[in-house]
């Protein structure tokens, strides 16, 4: 269980190698010692999806195939057309359901949904987490992620920054990915790490995906396991100026979507069962205090 070695603090970062060895020993001696996964506990957003409709004062929709935004396939060769129809996005049974469907619609072979809190909720630093049951199958690409505020369009991606709390390939039902994108480290060159469940899957029950984000660090966790920390040091290790760390100076907003096909996953398999639905039990955000 090497992923239980993390106990995030500055000293740990400075003396990473030493502490890895020491903490391994500690864990080995006392397996009951709990890993400190989260530190921030002051709720600033509690979206429980308990109603019968999406709260549109908080969430808005991205519609279409990206063409209207100038990025057909949403910049990733994705195959779906996003709609705001209840067939694709609905709130019922206490969960948000975003469903990818196999249907011809506005020239696309699939439909799905993407919602975002831009203008509805934005925050700098804190703990962002969601409890999600994922869909499955070749080419299904759900995500729980964040983009930086673009200053009314004055700045563009990747300079605004992107924090991917959860990305997942439907054909790899035991693996989630946590990443950051910024100037010099975007698209296929993002700073990323995957986390694999060894005796479970992400599509058979709910799991909590989260980050704790503060000055010069983003911690990634799944359920009770902290599996990565990304800092400006990671940029330097990739030969990128640490000044390109774009996560200290702006608010970010939240996105939830299910893409179908695209560069990250390959073409979708039309023969898997559809609809493929991502169920979100809650999205909660805590202040960095």
């Amino acid at each position: 269980m090497t992923h239980k070695i993390f106990n995030i603090n500055k000293a740990f970062i400075l003396y990473k190698a030493f502490y890895i060895g020491l903490l391994c020993i500690i864990t080995g001696c006392d397996p009951d010692e709990a890993q400190t996964v989260t530190n921030f506990n002051t709720l600033t957003l509690s979206e429980e999806f308990d109603g019968t409709a999406l709260n549109t004062s908080l969430w808005s929709f991205d519609i279409g195939d990206g063409s209207a935004q100038g990025i057909p396939g949403w910049g990733n060769n994705e195959q779906q057309y996003y709609t705001d129809r209840p067939e694709n996005v609905t709130v019922e049974d206490g969960v948000l359901k975003i469903s990818a469907r196999l249907e011809t619609f506005e020239g696309s072979s699939y439909t799905s949904g993407r919602i975002l809190t831009r203008g509805g909720f934005q925050q700098k630093f804190g703990r962002f987490e969601a409890r999600i049951k994922l869909p499955w199958g070749q080419g299904i690409w759900p995500a729980f992620w964040m983009l930086g505020d673009d200053n009314n369009g004055l700045e563009i991606w990747p300079n605004i920054g992107e924090i991917d709390i959860m990305e997942y390939r439907g054909q790899e039902p035991t693996i989630t990915h946590g990443s950051v994108h910024g100037p010099g480290y975007s698209g296929g060159n993002s700073i990323t790490k995957q986390y694999e469940l060894m005796n479970d899957r992400f599509d058979t029950d709910f799991h909590v995906f989260g980050v704790e984000w503060g000055p010069d660090y983003i911690n990634y966790y799944v359920d009770d396991v902290l599996y990565n920390q990304i800092t400006p040091d990671d940029l330097e290790e990739e030969g990128i100026n640490r000044a390109n760390w774009v996560f200290n100076d702006r608010e970010f907003f939240i996105l939830l979507n299910v893409a179908v096909g695209g560069s990250f996953v390959g073409n979708a398999d039309p023969n898997i069962p559809y609809p493929q639905t991502m169920e979100v039990d809650y999205v909660r955000v805590y202040a960095a205090d």
Partner: peptide, 10 residues
């Protein structure tokens, strides 16, 4: 074995 990684019974 109890793999835990089998899913989507059909």
């Amino acid at each position: 074995e109890n793999l835990g990684t089998l899913g989507q019974p059909r």
